[in-house]
């Protein structure tokens, strides 16, 4: 009896450590949500209570319109969706082509892709910026999306390649017997099978693009209306470091959507990250 109690105590004593740690860990998020509903006056007077005396939506209104976070949200969605579409289309076609074991030049291309993963790039943002300017795309989010998607391709290409290689050749031949050409086989037969890979790649790149900062920052320097949420937050803070409730509301607009996406799809996301280690 005492032995079992000891075991019970020994196993549950960890919660005494973990619960406070976790509370402190997510405190910035809790504070952010609480502060977003407080009036600036209440914030100024202070008081450590998290619950606002009288909840207000004024901060969100100010962040959404005056600080343009409505525009920034639309930009972020456009940018992220564009990056995901680019990566999915480009990586799945390449992965499909590279799944052919006897394609001449395959080894070279795969070798180059993998090598760049391990070679530190130094900082390549300047040539990227020059290139996008040269293409005449510096005044839109498409240029930024290209610059974000290009370096993000390697892992998705390898994932698609691995997946398509694992599909029995007979399936493809059967499709050909039925009269489906190369393009049709890819689009109507192979791509629908690749849903799990599509899901992982889409989610990882969506979160990556939503949280991107360097590329959107550099590509919106000359055009503040194209800022994404991260860059917008930086601009807001740079202009007004004292509007804490407004900043908190802006932070909620920037962070909460992606946290919700993550909570719904956490398993896919966590497995995608863990995959980097396992392979």
């Amino acid at each position: 009896m005492t032995g079992r109690w000891q075991l019970f105590a020994r196993r549950n004593v960890w919660h005494l450590l973990l619960v406070p740690l976790c509370l402190a860990w997510i405190y910035p998020f809790v504070w952010m949500v609480a502060a977003a509903f407080k009036t600036p006056r209440e914030m100024l007077i202070g008081g450590l209570s998290l619950l606002p005396d009288e909840a207000t939506f004024e901060n969100f209104r100010r962040a959404w319109t005056t600080a343009k976070f409505g525009t920034y949200t639309a930009n972020t969605i456009t940018f992220s969706v564009a990056v995901v579409m680019l990566v999915l289309l480009v990586a799945s076609t390449a992965g499909y082509a590279l799944a052919r074991p006897r394609l001449p030049g395959k080894k070279l291309l795969v070798g180059v892709l993998i090598a760049t993963m391990f070679i530190p790039h130094g900082y390549t943002i300047i040539p990227t910026f020059v290139l996008v300017n040269g293409l005449g795309l510096s005044n839109g989010l498409l240029g930024a999306a290209l610059a974000q998607a290009g370096p993000a391709l390697v892992v998705p290409v390898l994932l698609f390649m691995g997946f398509f290689s694992g599909i029995p050749k007979e399936l493809e031949e059967a499709a050909r017997m039925d009269g489906a050409g190369y393009l049709r086989t890819y689009w109507s037969v192979m791509l629908p099978l690749a849903k799990p890979v599509i899901g992982t790649v889409a989610l990882l790149n969506f979160i990556g693009a939503w949280n991107a900062f360097f590329v959107p920052l550099v590509f919106t320097l000359g055009n503040p209306d194209l800022r994404t949420l991260g860059v917008g937050m930086y601009g807001f803070y740079g202009q007004d470091t004292t509007d804490w409730t407004g900043l908190a509301a802006a932070a909620c607009i920037g962070v909460l959507p992606i946290v919700v996406v993550f909570l719904f799809l956490q398993r896919t996301f966590v497995e995608g990250i863990a995959g980097a280690v396992k392979n």
Binding site: L86, L89, V90, A91, T93, A94, Y96, A97, L98, R100, L103, P104, L109, V112, L113, T116, I119, H121, G122, Y123, T124, I125, I126, P127, T128, V130, L131, L146, A147, A149, G150, P151, L153, V154, V157, Y182, L183, Y186
Partner: peptide
């Protein structure tokens, strides 16, 4: 089919070449 495969690789070569390989050299 090999020709098709190379066609399918064009987007990757362009995007990866333009935004990863070229910047490494151009730097």
């Amino acid at each position: 089919r090999n020709l098709w495969s190379y066609l399918f690789l064009v987007p990757t070569v362009l995007l990866f070449g333009g935004f990863t390989l070229w910047p490494m050299v151009a730097s």
